[in-house]
Design a protein around this nucleic acid. Structure first.
Length: 350
DNA sequence: AAGACGGGGCC
DNA sequence: GGCCCAGTCTT
């Protein structure tokens, strides 16, 4: 039997029941695809449900404040996805009369939509014969055809896209694309693939040559940087604090956090007090600080480890806008801050 | 072409 | 501790 036929057969018997598989509107498909970029379905699913409930149409999403969108996205990571999602929603709602582009090329122009997502939406919503190549597709194809071209350089990206496009069932690209991804996710897994019961175990070259564990080939991993964060948690008499919004290019752009002092190494109270940040924030010269966590909280991101100390600051007067403690929970914050708040805030404020 | 960008799950 | 996940954007 031919590859697409076998694949589809497997898919129809093994596919999961997922909410975006019951619909074909580009809004829902687009939303699900953005959320699932570099994200496992189990992690993204609850967020998808929340978003569809809060924003049933692209117009609802377009009209929402950015802070509200980021708050709903909180914990899902890669927050540029949420900012691009919101911007694209406004573009579609207000410039395109609520209609998404109806082909691969048009979809590719949308912010946050790259080759993979444009192919997914175009094939699933419009039946356009464009092959998706995600992490699952790289794995499945590299193993079955024993391709050791690295998947994360230009040559590999090109080679796998061409191969996927050649294999694509042009009669039903929607089913083929979802089938090959589902097969990669459930059967041809990164670890412990089910080669014994694999529908392709008579033709898989990696299996034949005992190279399943080596494939796909991926080039070099970047090294992890250490950073040292000191958060100034103002806990004022009137039950208020200070939050600042992160801006610029780095992590957590658009999210809120306590005033931050970043140092070259783990700093003590004396070093911290000498920072300009205090004179920027504190009205008089009367203040006290107390280290909240004796051991630094180590927050691990893909490419940096954040060694974090929370300092409780008491003073009478501050120079920046204050936020009532009971309103802190409304702001979108990184998981690092969310975890602290869950421990520090009284239940009444959560 | 190479980095940056989150958080969670698995080994 | 390292790898991976329905990738995209920036430099």
């Amino acid at each position: 039997m031919v590859f697409p036929k076998r694949l589809t057969h497997w898919y129809l018997q093994n596919k999961r029941d997922l909410p975006w598989r019951k619909v074909h509107e580009p809004y829902q498909i687009w939303l699900s695809e953005i959320m699932l970029q570099q994200t496992r379905i189990e992690q993204g699913l609850p967020y998808y449900k929340k978003f569809i409930e809060a924003y049933p149409t692209v117009f609802h999403l377009a009209k929402a404040p950015q802070d509200e969108v980021l708050k709903l996205w909180q914990g899902l990571g890669y927050y540029s996805r949420a900012r691009n999602l919101h911007e694209t929603a406004k573009h579609v709602a207000f410039d395109l009369n609520g209609k998404f582009p109806d082909n691969y090329k048009g979809l590719l122009k949308l912010k946050g939509v790259g080759d993979y997502t444009a192919s997914a939406i175009a094939s699933i919503c419009y039946g356009e014969p464009v092959a998706v190549v995600d992490g699952n597709v790289y794995r499945v194809l590299s193993r079955i055809f024993e391709i050791d071209t690295p998947i994360n350089n230009t040559a590999g990206i090109k080679e796998f896209k061409i191969l996927a496009q050649e294999l694509l069932d042009e009669k039903d690209p929607a089913t083929f694309n979802q089938a090959i991804m589902e097969f990669g996710a459930l059967h041809c897994k990164p670890q412990n693939p089910k080669c014994d019961s694999c529908p392709f175990n008579d033709m898989c070259l990696a299996l034949k040559n005992d190279r399943v564990k080596e494939l796909p080939v991926k080039l070099k991993k970047s090294k992890v940087k250490k950073r040292f964060f000191n958060y100034l948690v103002f806990d004022l008499k009137d039950e208020s604090t200070i939050l600042e919004q992160r801006k610029g290019k780095g992590i957590w752009n658009g999210l809120y956090q306590f005033p931050l002092v970043e140092t070259e190494s783990l700093s003590d109270e004396e070093e911290l007090k000498s920072q300009d940040k205090f004179t920027d924030l504190i009205g008089g010269d009367e203040f006290s600080i107390e280290l909240y966590n004796q051991k630094p909280v180590v927050h691990k991101l893909s490419h940096q480890h954040l060694y974090t100390r929370f300092w409780i600051v008491n003073t009478t007067e501050v120079k920046k806008p204050k936020i009532a403690l009971q309103e802190v929970i409304d702001y979108p914050v990184p998981v690092l801050i969310e975890n602290f708040l869950n421990e520090y805030l009284p239940d009444a404020y959560k």
